[in-house]
Structure formats: structure tokens, C-alpha cells
Design a protein around this nucleic acid. Structure first.
Length: 285
DNA sequence: TATATTGTTACACC
DNA sequence: TGGTGTAACAATAT
């Protein structure tokens, strides 16, 4: 499931592969993946557009497009959410053998390369928004909390937003996109293990040292995961079809009933607000 | 066949 | 009003 490190990995790779390319056509094989407009309108609006930029906000990819001025329809951004099982697969040369029943959109570029949007569970989506609305999506306050890897996200800032959400349990809070952007089930577990804090702890109960440790965990684990191209749990692979190597570094996620790597105690799995959480009952207080 | 899976959101509740 | 929790939803694997 793509969280911030996985989406950022894809973003960087797309940037390298696609900037400057022209979309020759798009083939929508599953129209429900396209939100807001019909598949036909979607195809018409992106055909002939140039790929200008690839940005990320939280777990969302934003592909900046530019249309020839003479079209007079203005520019659009392509907004992509992969949700649980979405994949973007880049091919230097189109190979129809790579098409599966999970291939829902195919983008054809004028140099012969292609991008497949696959999604086993079909939870993801793509939509087009006018270019002038892109900045608003990227802005803070609108919908998402701060980007954890930006310099502006300081310990002071973390303390400040925490103080506004005193009653919440820390794990659901870390996963709340309006609180902080990009963290999901895997990395919230890993960050809290790093901080030796149990996922069900209430925000107000956290001591200053614990808050600092959680902050450090965010700043350490996310970049480390990006460096290793994310974690391949479920179906995640990068645009070259490769798995993320951070999966071998996971300390608690998916390790229930296995022994804690630090103290050999059995890792537990519990439900917190309907979501599974993994933790070491000895290391995490 | 029932259940588990997660990110997001609509909605109930205090 | 807004913070919090719950349920529902998407579709599939087991």
C-alpha cells in the first residue's frame, strides 16, 4: 500500500521518465477509475498534452500538463491516487503482453513509451483539475496537514498541532491526513516502535521526551524508506516493477506473533479505531 | 462463504 | 463547532 515513501519513490521515477514527453493518447479500460468526467472527455482533454511536472502532496501524485495554447482549453493537472493496490508501470517500449486484467488505464507517449495504471482492488482514481487549482491542492490547511519532510515541519510545529488534538490516540492521529500528510498504517506502526510509544496512547499522555522521539522517528524513518524505494507490502512495486527494500527493515508491521527484534517479546496486533496496529508490549510503553 | 484488508469520507455523537 | 469514533465503500484473496 503506497504511503509517502512509496508515492515519493514513484514520483521521482516518473519525473525522470516522463518530463517533456507528449501524451499521444490514453486508453481507459475501466471508466470508473476516472472521477468527475467521462472517460471520453478525459481522453480528449489529455491527448496531445506535454508532461510539465510531477509533484506529490500526501499520498497523491499531481502530474502537471500543458496543452498547446491554440486549443484554448487551458492547462490541467492529472491527479492520481493509488489507494491500496494501485501501480504505475513504465515501459520504454509498449508490450501488450504486460496487460493484465488489472490494467485499467494505458497512457501512450509519442516516443513509443507507455505508462500502465494497474489496480487489483480498483480503489484508486484519476481526475483532471484545472491548473490554477493545483496550487490550492498543494497548499496546507486546505485539506492536508504539513508535509513531514519539509523543513518547515519542526519539532515546535509538531508540538503545536499535537496540542490541538489532545483527546486522540496517537496512531490514528499520525494516520490522519489533516493532522500530518502521507503517513499510513505501516509507517505509523514503525514510527511508534522507534519512539517506544504504544499506538493507543492518548496525545495528552505523551511526555515531552516521547513527543520528541516520535518527531525524530518521522524524520528518520520516512527518508530512510524513500532511500530504499519504500516497502512492498501487498502489491506495491515501483514504476520499473521492482519491490521496495524497506520491507526487510520493518520492525513491527506484519510481524504479529513474531519475536521483537530488540527484546524477543512476541509482537502483538490489536485493533485501534477499526484498524490493525502492531507493537511490542515490552519495548513500547 | 464469511472475513480481513486500508484510505477516505459521510455521519453520529458529545 | 469541531474533535472523535464508527461504519461504509471500493474488490479481491484466503
Amino acid at each position: 500500500m503506497p504511503e509517502l515513501p512509496e508515492v515519493e519513490t514513484i514520483r521521482k521515477q516518473l519525473e525522470k521518465a516522463l518530463i517533456g514527453k507528449k501524451i499521444k493518447s490514453a486508453e481507459i479500460r475501466l471508466s470508473k477509475l476516472v472521477k468527475g468526467i467521462s472517460a471520453r472527455e478525459f481522453e480528449n482533454k489529455i491527448r496531445g498534452a506535454l508532461i510539465k511536472s510531477i509533484k506529490r502532496r500526501a499520498k497523491i501524485l499531481i502530474v502537471g500538463l500543458s496543452n498547446p495554447v491554440r486549443w484554448q482549453i487551458g492547462n490541467f493537472s492529472l491527479v492520481i491516487h493509488l489507494k491500496l493496490t494501485g501501480q504505475l508501470i513504465y515501459q520504454e517500449k509498449y508490450d501488450p503482453k504486460q496487460i493484465t486484467k488489472y490494467t485499467h488505464i494505458i497512457y501512450y507517449f509519442s516516443d513509443g513509451s507507455t505508462l500502465f495504471h494497474n489496480d487489483l482492488r480498483r480503489f484508486g482514481y484519476v481526475k483532471l483539475i484545472p491548473a490554477e487549482k493545483t496550487d490550492k491542492l498543494l497548499e496546507e490547511k486546505e485539506k492536508f496537514g504539513p508535509e513531514p519532510l519539509e523543513k518547515q515541519f519542526t519539532l515546535e510545529k509538531f508540538k503545536k498541532i499535537l496540542s490541538k488534538r489532545q483527546g486522540a490516540k496517537i496512531k490514528p492521529l499520525l494516520m490522519d491526513q489533516t493532522f500530518i500528510a502521507g503517513i499510513g498504517n505501516v509507517y505509523s506502526d514503525e514510527i511508534l516502535f522507534y519512539a517506544s510509544v504504544r499506538p493507543m496512547r492518548i496525545a495528552t499522555s505523551l511526555k515531552p521526551a516521547e513527543i520528541q522521539k516520535i518527531y525524530q522517528g518521522i524524520k528518520k524513518i520516512l527518508p530512510e524508506a524513500i532511500r530504499l524505494h519504500g516497502s512492498s507490502v501487498d502489491t506495491y512495486i515501483d514504476i520499473k516493477g521492482k519491490q521496495g527494500k524497506y520491507i526487510s527493515r520493518l520492525k513491527v508491521y506484519g510481524r504479529d506473533n513474531k519475536l521483537c527484534l530488540k527484546c524477543k517479546t512476541k509482537i502483538e496486533r490489536v485493533k485501534i479505531n477499526g484498524r490493525s496496529a502492531h507493537f511490542c508490549p515490552r519495548c513500547q510503553i
